[in-house]
Every structure is written in C-alpha cells, then in structure tokens.
C-alpha cells in the first residue's frame, strides 16, 4: 500500500469558474477527456482499488486450519493492537525512523549544498558516484553488506583485528538494527541528494546576487536562502523516508538468511505480515496488520507535514512576510 499524501497543499485556490451554459462543443471536449482517462482508471481500479478493497474484506475474516473461514469483524485489528510482536516491530521501525532518517537526510543535504556551491569540474562525477548505490538493487546491496559485516572473513572485521581492536559483531541481535540503518543510509543518500540538488538548481540567481550585495557568506547563503527555498523538496524526502522506514522489508528478509538469530519473524511490521501470510498461514491477520501499518504511515506522515507547515508559517512571520 502506498499512500501519497498531498504535498502541494498551499497552492492558492483558483478563482471560482464563472457559471456558463455548456455549449455542445464544450460537452464534446469533456467527453473526450473522460475517454482519455478511461484506460488509466481501468488499470487503477483493477490493479489498485480492487485488491485493496479485497484485502480489507479479507482482514475482517478469520481462517482456521480446522473450521475454515469465519466472519470475525474487527477481531483481527483488536488482536493486532494487543500483539506485542507487532507493536515491538512498530517500535523498531519508529526508532529506525527517528535515528536513521535525520542522519541520512542531513548527509544528503550537506552533500547537495556542497555540490551546489562548488559547481566546478568534477562535481558531475562526484554526483554520479554518490548516486550509484541507489542504482544497486536492495537485494545485492544487502548481500554485499552481509559479506562486509562477516565476523570471520569480512574485511571490516579483518582490518579491525589487524589494528588490535578485536572483532566487531555487526550481526548480533543488539547491533543488527544499526547495521541495517547503515545499509539503508548508504543506499538512499544519493537518491535524496539528487532531489535536493535539483531543487537547489532551480533557485533564481538574483537571490544570490542580492544576498552577496548584502554581504552574506556561503554559510549564511545556505542557511537563509537555500534551505528555506527548497523546503518543499525537503518535505518530500521526509515523507518518502517515513514510508520507506515503516515499510522496511527487503533488508530484514535478506539479513535473516545471514543472521536468523538476530532477526525475528516480526522484526519489522511488513516482514511480520509476510511471515504471517506465508508461514503461519494466517492470511487474514496479515491483511489486518498491513492495513494498520498503512494507517500508521498515514498518521505519521500527516503530523510530520503539519509540523513542517507550521514551522514555515512561523518562519514567514519572523521575517515579516505575509504567508
């Protein structure tokens, strides 16, 4: 389930259209517009809406190995809200979001600003290098990091032993979440950096000239002009990161093969739903978990966006600009 929250909520409402009698010409145009939309709606409804509704319908039943399907109402949801495994998984991805996302976005912002202010030679190559990890499939990335983390033959452990620091255990139950944050950061810094960089490039140059005349240095420029100017892009990366962290699946599922003792079947809510469906054969409960996860993501996204908007309003007010 992907929730795409409305990002451009501050667009001024356009003036109400004047009441006019629709001419036959207009009606024809409208009909054509709807006809053009039909192919999209067919795919949208059959591939997205119907499965979603079906999953919602499934989540209201209880299927037992003995006794079959029974209508259960909201029992699956009640069970999920009291399921310590689900709540612990939710807590884990919450922690992941709180720690990993600021690090990743901070790093991405720093790199984007650095690249933007040094538009000289080589910056294209650097940009590409930072972006490359995003092009590596998550499966390959996780397997590669699994090797790098290996306690006996992994290069990190070997170097650490060579300089006398002992063997770090990246795959133990205590450190696996941190190891996973590192993998995800590595994968997505470039992606977020590109979004921010593109936004930075679209800032009109006159602003910089004006700032220079006022005597602003590079840091002042970044802080007072660039970052406020790309706020919508930043918000976009935050929302994407919320969805990404809460839906964490590929990394735990692949690392489970390497460190099954550290990754439980309910490590993240998404991974838990998968295991419920395909190992426990509790398809209906898995559907309920997936729905709840969607709701949680929507709520968190909403509040983060709300907080962002408020800060923007406060910022405008401080600088004496009419919102």
């Amino acid at each position: 389930m992907t929730h795409s929250p409305a990002l451009a909520s501050e667009r001024p409402a356009s003036a109400p259209p004047l009441k006019k009698r629709t001419t036959p010409m207009k009606r024809k145009q409208r009909l054509a517009a709807y006809l053009f939309l039909v192919p999209f709606f067919i795919v949208f409804i059959t591939m997205l809406v119907v499965p979603l509704v079906y999953a919602g319908y499934l989540s209201l039943f209880e299927s037992k190995l003995i006794g079959g399907d029974v209508f259960a109402g909201l029992a699956n949801y009640v069970r999920a809200l009291t399921d310590s495994a689900f709540l612990a998984g939710l807590g884990r991805v919450g922690l992941f979001f709180i720690i990993q996302v600021p690090i990743m976005l901070g790093l991405a912002l720093f790199l984007a600003l650095a690249l933007d202010s040094a538009r000289g030679r080589g910056s294209k190559a650097v940009r590409l290098l930072i972006f490359v990890p995003y092009a590596v499939p998550a499966v390959v990335a996780t397997l590669m990091w699994g090797y790098l983390y290996g306690p006996d033959f992994g290069p990190i452990a070997q170097i650490s032993r060579a300089v006398g620091l002992g063997t770090p255990d990246f795959l133990s139950p205590e450190s696996i979440l941190g190891s996973m944050m590192n993998i995800v950061t590595w994968e997505f810094v470039g992606y977020n950096m590109i979004i921010m960089y593109a936004a930075l490039r679209s800032i009109p140059a006159e602003l910089y000239e004006a700032a220079e005349i006022d005597g602003a240095g590079q840091f002042r420029l970044a802080w007072s002009i660039k970052i406020p100017a790309i706020r919508p892009a930043l918000m976009l990366t935050v929302i994407f990161s919320i969805i990404g962290s809460f839906q964490l699946f590929a990394e735990p599922s692949l690392l489970n093969a390497i460190a099954p003792d550290a990754i439980s079947t309910s490590f993240t809510p998404n991974y838990y739903a998968y295991n419920l469906a395909f190992i426990n054969q509790e398809l209906n409960y898995a559907a309920a978990i997936a729905f709840l996860l969607g709701v949680v993501i929507a709520i968190v996204s909403y509040f983060v966006q709300l907080a962002g908007e408020r800060r923007e309003r406060v910022g405008h007010a401080e600088r004496g600009i009419e919102p």
């Binding site: 190995l65 139950p173 099954p260 003792d261 550290a262 295991n275 054969q281």
Partner: peptide
C-alpha cells in the same frame, strides 16, 4: 500438521537463546 510455523517459532524462541 503445521511444521512451517514450528520451525519459524523455533528460530524466534530457541534459536535466539542458543545464539545468546
């Protein structure tokens, strides 16, 4: 009649304890 679950539950309960 549900060994898939028996094994995955073993991993979560006994497996983690052995590793620890």
């Amino acid at each position: 009649p549900y060994m898939d679950y028996v094994y995955s539950s073993y991993e979560d309960t006994v497996g983690t304890v052995i590793a620890d």
